[in-house]
Measured scan of single mutants.
Amino acid sequence: QEELVKAFKALLKEEKFSSQGEIVAALQEQGFDNINQSKVSRMLTKFGAVRTRNAKMEMVYCLPAELGV
């Protein structure tokens, strides 16, 4: 569980995922086979993730800066 949270936060820091499906796929690539869209959705809510525009003006998920991840 701890490893999943770390990987999840690291992915969001990249600010390149525009959908929950993309986050699920990226986590599965890292070996988290039991991850699915509903789990990702709950984690996004739990950590207060928001959708914002990145440098390329794409809408992407990211974590609020005050979490200091």
Rank of each mutant, 00 (worst) to 15 (best):
L27C: 02
M57R: 07
N54S: 04
L4H: 02
P64L: 04
E2F: 11
F8L: 09
C62A: 15
T45H: 13
Q37Y: 08
V50N: 05
G31L: 03
S19M: 06
G48K: 10
S41T: 08
N34P: 04
S38L: 11
A55F: 05
A65R: 09
T45E: 14
R42Y: 15
N34V: 05
K13P: 01
A65Q: 11
R42E: 15
L63F: 07
L44G: 00
V40G: 00
E3L: 12
E2I: 10
A10S: 12
N36D: 11
A49K: 02
I35G: 01
L67Y: 04
A10I: 08
Y61H: 02
A26Y: 11
K9P: 00
L44F: 03
F32I: 04
R42C: 09
A10L: 11
N34E: 11
E58Q: 12
K56M: 10
D33A: 13
M59Q: 05
M59H: 06
F8R: 00
M59E: 07
S18T: 12
E29F: 08
Q1V: 11
G21I: 12
D33S: 13
V40A: 03
L27E: 00
T52V: 14
S19Y: 12
L11H: 03
R51A: 05
F8E: 00
S18I: 08
E2R: 10
R51Y: 15
A26N: 06
Q28W: 09
E3I: 12
S38G: 11
Q1G: 12
L11Q: 01
D33Y: 11
K13N: 08
S38C: 05
V24R: 06
E15T: 05
A10D: 09
N36P: 05
G48Y: 03
L4A: 03
N54W: 02
F17V: 04
F8Q: 00
K13E: 09
V40P: 00
V5D: 14
V40T: 02
E15Q: 10
N34Q: 11
K9Y: 13
I23A: 01
T52W: 06
L12H: 00
T45Y: 08
E22L: 05
P64G: 05
Q20N: 08
E15I: 04
N34R: 09
V24Q: 05
A49N: 03
G48H: 09
G68H: 07
V24K: 05
K6D: 08
S41D: 14
E66C: 15
Q30C: 06
Q30W: 08
F17W: 09
M59T: 06
L67S: 15
E2G: 11
T52D: 06
S41P: 01
Q30H: 07
K46I: 10
E29C: 06
E29T: 10
Q37N: 12
Y61D: 01
V5F: 14
E14A: 13
M43Y: 06
E14M: 14
G21Y: 12
E2W: 10
K56R: 07
K16M: 08
R53T: 14
L63K: 02
S19P: 01
E58W: 03
N36R: 07
L11G: 01
G31P: 00
Q37G: 10
E29W: 08
E2D: 13
E15H: 06
A25G: 07
V40M: 03
V5L: 13
R53I: 15
R53S: 10
L63T: 02
L27Y: 01
A7C: 10
A10Q: 13
V50P: 02
V40I: 08
K39C: 08
L67E: 14
K9A: 08
F8C: 11
I23H: 00
L44A: 02
G48W: 03
L67A: 15
Y61G: 02
V60E: 02
A55W: 05
K56S: 10
V5T: 10
T45I: 15
I35M: 08
K16H: 05
V50Q: 08
A65I: 10
K13Y: 08
T52M: 15
S18A: 10
D33C: 09
C62G: 14
Q28C: 06
G21Q: 14
V50S: 08
S19A: 07
V60L: 02
N36C: 04
A65H: 11
A26E: 09
Q20L: 11
L4D: 01
F47L: 13
F8V: 07
L27P: 00
S41L: 08
Q20S: 10
T45N: 11
G68K: 04
Q30V: 08
E66S: 07
E58G: 05
A26D: 03
K16S: 09
K39E: 14
K6S: 11
R42K: 12
R51F: 15
Q28G: 05
K9M: 10
A26L: 05
E3Y: 10
V5I: 14
F32A: 01
E14N: 05
T52E: 09
G48F: 03
R51I: 15
F8H: 00
K13D: 06
V40F: 02
V24T: 07
F17T: 04
Q1I: 11
Y61E: 01
M57G: 15
F17N: 01
P64M: 04
G31T: 01
K6P: 04
N54V: 02
A49L: 02
Q37R: 15
S18Y: 05
C62V: 10
A7S: 08
V50R: 09
Y61L: 04
E2A: 11
S18E: 07
Q1F: 12
Y61C: 01
A25Y: 10
E29D: 11
M57S: 10
F47M: 09
L67M: 11
S38I: 10
Q37S: 11
E22W: 03
E66D: 12
A65C: 03
K6F: 10
S19N: 09
E58R: 06
Y61P: 01
E14R: 06
L4N: 00
R53Q: 14
L63G: 02
K9D: 03
Y61V: 02
A65P: 15
L11D: 00
N54Q: 02
F8W: 01
G48E: 06
V60K: 03
